[in-house]
Design a protein around this nucleic acid. Structure first.
Length: 783
DNA sequence: GCAAGGTC
């Protein structure tokens, strides 16, 4: 029997369908819950295809290294790594199948990780059936094992791959294995180092890694730029002119006046009527977008649909499993020639929602755009099936539509816009107005997200005279909004990096892969290094990154990834061995650890300072009003405190003195309850609505984040209170209904009992926002 | 309880 092993079930199924077609199709079955497919080929030989679930084995530390406190990190660095199965059922299944096989074809994905996954599976199968070869052979790389390399699971491409079988590349697989070992050794060693030195144990540990730390760095560096930003005031000058079509606004040709006096001078020089000096029109051609790879898909889902990369990938995974779109993890931006694009376009444009692109069916030749990256892993993301988007629900519908519209757009003509600019001289000053009109929407007709709204301006001719709509006037500086002529503004700090942009930056710097970038960002949230959307770094996150930038810059920058990539290439080319590369890396890691071991107290102090700052929510209004301050004269601060006895968290004032009498005027007894579950962080030091207490954002473990003003009387909380009361009333009503059909005769005893229970419940649900559960202990330490 | 990389 010839056994074909793929990286995932969907590929095994496709291969079985294509190769098994002459025999009337494959038979599907399962073993150890793993699906497999069998058929008989043209020569009467039995064939079987089975899909793995990604990696079969992963590197791990052997026994004896699991206690963080008791393991010397130099020993950890020298540990002989073992390989652990990632899914026992998959291993059992392929071992069982291998026993019946007399030939193997590795048909995992056509990329480096695919080669490694193939080797992992091979090692397990040789264990089960040594007649196929031995582990020693694979270690030496002397065993020739067939390899199918395909870059799309289309019939044409699969037949081509199986007619041109190649051999497994051990050097390529070993390159991937070296990366695994280095990532684990560095990640585990330094994660333990920083967690131990800051005494953050258990689920509270602090982590660092080759990809996560530089990614955090991108966010922190931008935050530092924002903090360093000094707002600079400037003034913009506007003038309104009369026109038969209506008055319209123009902007002074000086973009920004940095001195108010200059703007005033320009305004004083402005007088009517204005004379149109020049009218220029320009045609702009915008090329249709390139095919979707994972990065472009996630950034578009983020910017056009407002769906975070992590959810976009989850939704795409669902759509892929349902057979509506192709494999969503791909680097490729060029459609392979084997895609049946004409048929696809025909069926897609038959769906009413996508009929705007039906013109494509009349084209003699379909010429899609091409992106910069052409890879062998998978095709770009495209719709594999036409369905009515209305048949899908919620975000799935919008994501499917996005993929369809993008696909159709890549075959569509460019968008043509015409922009017009007119310069108008008014006195000694010149003003201008610009408009833009879509002449031919082209691809934007189907890729509707890209279409810009027309900004029309009145028809203007050179030499035309226009009256000013109002007489230039000066107003007091303290009412800038009241003056239609001069608008005072100030320069803004660079904006925070959106999650979509972050994915793009990661790709640019080679950080992570198409399959991991969204997960890495999620990890930064889970560790409490960032919060909010766009992600804002916590003080802990900032401190940790800054500490690593100082002490282990290799880990805090993309440098390590770049080095590893270069080394992997050399292993794949046969210029270096995995053993040498990992050995050298271990040596460097010993050196690195020795260096930070000496400075770990400094590192811990930096991180602790950040953690402390994250607990501080804002100044205490009560102390402020009572004139109480800290010894140094700075305000007493409200901060998150964890009660020693109960483990519950609450907000207390730094002005509280443990030994004070209950009504000692020198001590502040202000406290506020906090939700016990979910992550809490500061939204405002002082609520902008009530101006009394800090305002927080609560991110529950699951579900939508909500805002909480600590001041219960704050107007911002009234709506929430109202809704809470409504919920309780509804609940109570329901309970009373439930209580009604109780056995008669027994007076009102049972209903009473129920009602009592109900009342109690109500209280608990009220506490939903205040005190409940202590499960997520970690959550309390953030702000 | 560690990383990053696959896939579900």
């Amino acid at each position: 029997m010839r056994l074909i092993v793929t990286e995932k079930n969907s590929s095994a199924k496709k291969i079985a369908e294509v190769l098994g077609a002459p025999a009337g199709g494959p038979k599907a079955d399962k073993t150890y819950k793993v699906p497999f497919y069998t058929w008989t080929n043209a020569e009467g030989r039995e064939e079987m295809a089975i899909g793995l679930k990604g990696h079969v084995l992963g590197p791990a530390f052997p026994e004896g290294y699991s206690n963080w406190q008791k393991t010397d990190l130099h020993d950890l660095i020298d540990a002989d790594l073992i390989k652990e199965p990632t899914d026992k059922n998959v291993v059992k299944a392929i071992k069982k199948m291998a026993k019946e096989a007399d030939e193997l074809v590795i048909a995992t994905d056509f990329d480096r990780e695919g080669e490694l996954i193939g080797l992992e599976a091979l090692e397990e199968m040789l264990d089960a059936n040594p007649s196929l070869g031995t582990r020693e052979d694979t270690a030496k790389g002397t065993l020739k094992i067939l390899r199918a390399r395909y870059s799309a699971t289309t019939k044409e491409e699969l037949l081509r791959a199986f007619d041109n079988l190649d051999y497994l590349s051990y050097p390529l697989a070993n390159a991937g294995a070296a990366r695994q070992d280095i990532d684990l050794l560095w990640g585990a060693t330094l994660t333990r180092a920083v967690s131990l030195s800051t005494r953050r144990f258990g689920s509270n540990f602090l982590s660092v890694g080759r990809v996560q730390s530089p990614t955090l760095g991108l966010i922190v560096e931008r935050e530092m730029e924002r903090r360093a930003h000094v707002a600079k005031p400037f003034w913009e000058l506007f003038a309104k002119f009369e026109h038969p079509d209506g008055t319209f606004q123009t902007h002074h040709t000086v973009d920004k006046f940095w001195e108010k006096a200059e703007a005033d001078k320009a305004l004083a020089g402005t007088s009517g009527p204005g004379v149109v000096k020049a009218v220029t029109a320009r045609k702009n051609t915008r090329r249709p977008p390139t095919p979707f790879n994972t990065t472009a898909f996630t950034t578009d889902a983020s910017s056009r649909l407002g769906i975070t990369p992590a959810s976009a990938m989850r939704i795409a995974e669902d759509l892929y499993m349902d057979g509506f779109i192709s494999y969503p993890r791909t680097d490729n931006t060029v459609y392979p020639s084997s895609l049946p694009v004409r048929e696809l376009i025909r069926s897609l444009t038959n769906v009413k929602e996508f009929s705007a692109a039906s013109g494509l069916n009349d084209l003699a030749e379909l010429k899609p755009t091409r992106g910069k990256k052409e890879t062998t892993d998978h095709p770009p993301i495209y719709p594999t099936q036409a369905i009515h988007p209305g048949a899908l629900e919620g975000p799935k519908k919008r994501v499917y539509e996005l993929v369809v519209r993008r696909f159709l757009a890549t075959f569509s003509p460019p968008m043509i816009t015409e922009s017009t600019r007119a310069d108008i001289e008014a006195g000694s000053e010149t003003y201008f107005v610009r408009g833009s009109v879509v002449v031919d929407p082209g691809y934007a007709g189907i890729y509707t997200y890209a279409r810009s709204a027309d900004e029309e301006i009145p028809a203007l001719q050179e030499g035309q005279e226009l009256q000013l709509a109002a007489v230039p006037e000066f107003r007091a500086d303290d009412e800038p909004d009241a003056n239609p002529w001069i608008v005072g503004k100030e320069t803004q700090p660079p904006s925070r990096i959106s999650q979509g942009k972050l994915i793009e930056l990661m790709e640019e710097r080679g950080l992570g892969t198409k399959a991991t970038r969204a997960d890495i960002i999620q990890k930064l949230f889970d560790r409490g290094y960032v919060y909010g959307n766009p992600p804002i770094p916590t003080e802990t996150g900032i401190a940790l990154y800054e500490a690593f930038k100082k002490y282990v810059p290799r880990m805090a920058t993309p440098e390590m990834t770049a080095d590893i990539e270069a080394e992997m290439d050399r292993i794949a080319q046969g210029e270096m061995t995995k053993g040498k590369v990992v050995g050298d890396s271990r040596e460097l890691l010993h050196k690195t650890w020795t260096e930070i071991d000496e400075k770990k107290e400094d590192l811990a102090k930096v991180v602790w300072k950040g953690m402390d700052e994250d607990r501080i929510l804002g100044p205490c209004k009560v102390c402020e009003e009572a004139g109480r301050t800290k010894e140094d004269g700075s305000p007493n601060m409200l901060r998150i405190i964890r009660a020693k006895k109960s483990g519950k968290r609450f907000v207390g004032c730094s002005g509280w003195k443990a030994d004070a009498e209950p009504d000692d005027p020198k001590s502040c007894d202000q406290t506020f309850p906090l939700p016990q579950r979910g992550d809490v962080f500061r939204l405002e030091e002082r609520c902008s609505i009530c101006d009394r207490t800090p305002r927080l954002k609560v991110q529950p473990f699951r579900g939508r984040p909500w805002n909480l003003c600590l001041n219960d009387d704050c107007e911002s909380m009234q709506e929430m209170k109202k809704r809470r009361a409504e919920r309780e009333a509804a609940k109570k009503a329901k309970e009373e209904m439930d209580a009604k059909p109780q056995p008669k005769g027994d007076e009102d005893a049972p209903p009473k009992a129920k009602a009592k229970k109900g009342a109690k419940k109500t209280k608990v649900s009220k506490a939903d926002t205040a005190t409940r559960g202590v499960k997520r202990a970690k959550a309390g330490t953030k702000s």
